[in-house]
Protein backbone atom coordinates (compact mmCIF):
# COMPACT_ATOMS: atom_id res chain seq x y z
CA UNK A 1 0.00 0.00 0.00
CA UNK A 2 1.45 3.33 -0.98
CA UNK A 3 1.10 5.95 1.69
CA UNK A 4 3.32 8.59 0.14
CA UNK A 5 1.79 12.01 -0.28
CA UNK A 6 2.64 15.70 -0.08
CA UNK A 7 2.77 17.43 3.29
CA UNK A 8 -0.56 19.19 3.92
CA UNK A 9 1.25 22.07 5.59
CA UNK A 10 4.31 22.95 3.52
CA UNK A 11 3.82 20.84 0.43
CA UNK A 12 7.02 18.85 0.73
CA UNK A 13 6.53 15.88 -1.61
CA UNK A 14 6.62 12.19 -0.78
CA UNK A 15 6.08 12.44 2.95
CA UNK A 16 5.88 8.81 3.99
CA UNK A 17 6.19 8.92 7.75
CA UNK A 18 4.18 10.32 10.66
CA UNK A 19 5.74 13.77 10.53
CA UNK A 20 6.86 15.94 7.63
CA UNK A 21 10.65 15.75 7.50
CA UNK A 22 10.77 19.42 6.57
CA UNK A 23 8.26 21.34 8.70
CA UNK A 24 7.70 18.61 11.30
CA UNK A 25 3.90 18.83 11.22
CA UNK A 26 1.81 15.73 11.90
CA UNK A 27 0.52 13.98 8.78
CA UNK A 28 -2.60 11.95 8.04
CA UNK A 29 -2.07 8.60 9.78
CA UNK A 30 -1.26 5.30 8.04
CA UNK A 31 -4.11 2.86 8.57
CA UNK A 32 -2.03 -0.33 8.37
CA UNK A 33 -1.15 -1.60 11.85
CA UNK A 34 2.23 -3.05 10.94
CA UNK A 35 3.33 -0.02 8.96
CA UNK A 36 2.13 2.19 11.78
CA UNK A 37 4.47 0.42 14.17
CA UNK A 38 7.24 0.41 11.59
CA UNK A 39 7.25 -3.39 11.50
CA UNK A 40 7.49 -5.98 8.78
CA UNK A 41 4.41 -8.14 8.46
CA UNK A 42 5.70 -10.82 10.80
CA UNK A 43 3.60 -13.00 13.09
CA UNK A 44 6.11 -13.57 15.88
CA UNK A 45 6.48 -10.33 17.83
CA UNK A 46 8.39 -9.49 20.98
CA UNK A 47 5.84 -8.09 23.48
CA UNK A 48 8.39 -5.95 25.36
CA UNK A 49 9.60 -4.37 22.17
CA UNK A 50 6.00 -3.75 21.10
CA UNK A 51 5.16 -2.08 24.42
CA UNK A 52 8.19 0.14 24.21
CA UNK A 53 7.25 1.18 20.71
CA UNK A 54 3.66 1.80 21.83
CA UNK A 55 4.76 4.11 24.63
CA UNK A 56 7.11 5.97 22.36
CA UNK A 57 4.48 6.52 19.67
CA UNK A 58 1.93 7.53 22.32
CA UNK A 59 4.27 10.26 23.51
CA UNK A 60 4.44 11.60 19.96
CA UNK A 61 0.81 11.26 18.92
CA UNK A 62 -1.51 11.54 21.93
CA UNK A 63 -4.07 14.42 21.76
CA UNK A 64 -2.67 15.76 25.06
CA UNK A 65 0.36 16.84 23.04
CA UNK A 66 -1.71 18.82 20.56
CA UNK A 67 -3.88 21.05 22.76
CA UNK A 68 -2.18 24.19 21.51
CA UNK A 69 -1.70 23.14 17.91
CA UNK A 70 -3.71 23.77 14.75
CA UNK A 71 -7.15 22.19 14.24
CA UNK A 72 -5.74 20.05 11.43
CA UNK A 73 -3.03 18.59 13.63
CA UNK A 74 -5.52 18.06 16.47
CA UNK A 75 -7.67 16.10 14.07
CA UNK A 76 -4.75 14.00 12.82
CA UNK A 77 -3.60 13.38 16.38
CA UNK A 78 -7.02 12.02 17.35
CA UNK A 79 -7.12 9.78 14.27
CA UNK A 80 -3.53 8.65 14.67
CA UNK A 81 -3.76 7.81 18.36
CA UNK A 82 -6.99 5.89 17.87
CA UNK A 83 -5.30 3.80 15.16
CA UNK A 84 -2.25 3.38 17.40
CA UNK A 85 -4.37 2.13 20.31
CA UNK A 86 -6.42 -0.16 18.10
CA UNK A 87 -3.23 -1.49 16.51
CA UNK A 88 -1.58 -2.17 19.84
CA UNK A 89 -4.66 -4.00 21.09
CA UNK A 90 -4.58 -6.27 18.04
CA UNK A 91 -0.82 -6.77 17.68
CA UNK A 92 -0.12 -7.62 21.31
CA UNK A 93 -2.64 -10.48 21.23
CA UNK A 94 -1.32 -13.44 19.15
CA UNK A 95 -4.81 -14.58 18.15
CA UNK A 96 -6.09 -11.20 17.03
CA UNK A 97 -2.75 -10.47 15.43
CA UNK A 98 -2.92 -13.58 13.24
CA UNK A 99 -6.55 -12.87 12.38
CA UNK A 100 -5.48 -9.41 11.27
CA UNK A 101 -2.72 -10.81 9.07
CA UNK A 102 -5.12 -13.34 7.55
CA UNK A 103 -7.59 -10.59 6.87
CA UNK A 104 -4.97 -8.38 5.23
CA UNK A 105 -3.89 -11.32 3.05
CA UNK A 106 -7.48 -11.66 1.86
CA UNK A 107 -8.42 -14.80 3.77
CA UNK A 108 -12.01 -15.29 4.90
CA UNK A 109 -12.13 -15.95 8.60
CA UNK A 110 -14.86 -18.19 9.99
CA UNK A 111 -17.94 -16.62 11.56
CA UNK A 112 -17.31 -16.36 15.31
CA UNK A 113 -20.81 -17.72 15.92
CA UNK A 114 -20.36 -20.67 13.55
CA UNK A 115 -22.15 -23.63 15.12
CA UNK A 116 -20.83 -26.30 12.76
CA UNK A 117 -18.99 -28.90 14.83
CA UNK A 118 -15.50 -29.89 13.65
CA UNK A 119 -15.73 -33.69 13.06
CA UNK A 120 -12.92 -34.60 15.47
CA UNK A 121 -14.79 -32.88 18.32
CA UNK A 122 -18.22 -34.43 17.69
CA UNK A 123 -18.08 -36.86 20.58
CA UNK A 124 -16.84 -34.34 23.15
CA UNK A 125 -19.37 -31.70 22.13
CA UNK A 126 -22.18 -34.23 22.40
CA UNK A 127 -21.10 -35.15 25.93
CA UNK A 128 -20.77 -31.51 26.91
CA UNK A 129 -24.23 -30.62 25.71
CA UNK A 130 -25.70 -33.56 27.64
CA UNK A 131 -23.99 -32.36 30.80
CA UNK A 132 -25.12 -28.77 30.30
CA UNK A 133 -28.70 -29.94 29.75
CA UNK A 134 -28.59 -31.91 32.98
CA UNK A 135 -27.26 -28.86 34.80
CA UNK A 136 -30.10 -26.78 33.41
CA UNK A 137 -32.55 -29.34 34.79
CA UNK A 138 -30.98 -28.79 38.19
CA UNK A 139 -28.73 -31.86 38.37
CA UNK A 140 -25.66 -30.61 40.24
CA UNK A 141 -23.93 -34.03 40.09
CA UNK A 142 -22.60 -33.17 36.64
CA UNK A 143 -20.59 -30.26 38.06
CA UNK A 144 -17.31 -32.18 38.58
CA UNK A 145 -17.64 -33.64 35.09
CA UNK A 146 -18.24 -30.18 33.60
CA UNK A 147 -15.23 -28.84 35.42
CA UNK A 148 -13.11 -31.68 34.05
CA UNK A 149 -14.33 -31.09 30.50
CA UNK A 150 -13.71 -27.37 30.82
CA UNK A 151 -10.15 -28.06 31.89
CA UNK A 152 -9.75 -30.50 29.00
CA UNK A 153 -10.80 -27.80 26.54
CA UNK A 154 -8.45 -25.28 28.13
CA UNK A 155 -5.60 -27.78 27.75
CA UNK A 156 -6.47 -28.23 24.09
CA UNK A 157 -6.36 -24.47 23.64
CA UNK A 158 -2.97 -24.23 25.32
CA UNK A 159 -1.72 -26.95 22.99
CA UNK A 160 -2.98 -25.04 19.97
CA UNK A 161 -1.32 -21.88 21.24
CA UNK A 162 2.00 -23.70 21.21
CA UNK A 163 1.29 -24.98 17.75
CA UNK A 164 0.43 -21.45 16.58
CA UNK A 165 3.67 -20.09 17.99
CA UNK A 166 5.78 -22.46 15.94
CA UNK A 167 3.64 -21.81 12.86
CA UNK A 168 4.28 -18.08 13.36
CA UNK A 169 8.03 -18.65 13.16
CA UNK A 170 7.59 -20.86 10.10
CA UNK A 171 5.50 -18.15 8.45
CA UNK A 172 8.07 -15.43 9.12
CA UNK A 173 10.88 -17.58 7.70
CA UNK A 174 9.21 -18.16 4.31
CA UNK A 175 10.92 -16.56 1.32
CA UNK A 176 7.86 -15.34 -0.62
CA UNK A 177 4.16 -14.55 -0.49
CA UNK A 178 3.08 -17.84 -1.97
CA UNK A 179 4.94 -19.87 0.63
CA UNK A 180 3.57 -17.63 3.37
CA UNK A 181 -0.01 -18.14 2.12
CA UNK A 182 0.44 -21.87 2.51
CA UNK A 183 1.39 -21.46 6.15
CA UNK A 184 -1.45 -19.02 6.69
CA UNK A 185 -3.94 -21.59 5.44
CA UNK A 186 -2.76 -23.94 8.18
CA UNK A 187 -2.94 -21.19 10.77
CA UNK A 188 -6.48 -20.38 9.76
CA UNK A 189 -7.53 -23.98 10.38
CA UNK A 190 -6.03 -23.92 13.88
CA UNK A 191 -7.71 -20.59 14.61
CA UNK A 192 -11.11 -21.87 13.54
CA UNK A 193 -10.81 -24.91 15.76
CA UNK A 194 -9.58 -22.77 18.62
CA UNK A 195 -12.46 -20.35 18.25
CA UNK A 196 -14.93 -23.21 18.37
CA UNK A 197 -13.43 -24.50 21.60
CA UNK A 198 -13.27 -20.98 23.04
CA UNK A 199 -17.03 -20.70 22.46
CA UNK A 200 -17.58 -24.00 24.25
CA UNK A 201 -15.64 -22.81 27.30
CA UNK A 202 -17.55 -19.52 27.27
CA UNK A 203 -20.81 -21.43 27.15
CA UNK A 204 -19.83 -23.49 30.21
CA UNK A 205 -18.73 -20.34 32.05
CA UNK A 206 -21.97 -18.62 31.21
CA UNK A 207 -24.03 -21.52 32.54
CA UNK A 208 -21.96 -21.67 35.71
CA UNK A 209 -22.17 -17.93 36.41
CA UNK A 210 -25.90 -17.94 35.65
CA UNK A 211 -26.27 -20.71 38.21
CA UNK A 212 -24.23 -18.84 40.81
CA UNK A 213 -26.09 -15.58 40.33
Amino acid sequence: MSTEHNCWQCGTPDVASLFCRYCNSLQAPIPNYYEFFGLNCQLALNPDHLQKQFYQLSRLLHPDRYTRRSEQEKHYSLQASSILNDAYRVLRDPIRRSEYVLNQAGFEIGDPRNKEVPPELLEEVFELNMALDELRMGDTEVLPQLDEMRQHFLDMMAEMDGELESQFLTHDAQPDDEARRKVLTGIRAILNRRRYIRNLVDEVDKQLTARNA
Partner: peptide, 8 residues
Protein backbone atom coordinates in the same frame (compact mmCIF):
# COMPACT_ATOMS: atom_id res chain seq x y z
CA UNK B 1 -10.99 -1.12 29.09
CA UNK B 2 -9.85 -0.29 25.58
CA UNK B 3 -7.25 2.48 25.59
CA UNK B 4 -8.75 5.76 24.34
CA UNK B 5 -8.90 7.27 21.79
CA UNK B 6 -10.40 4.05 20.41
CA UNK B 7 -12.38 3.46 17.26
CA UNK B 8 -14.41 0.95 15.26
Amino acid sequence: NSTIPASA
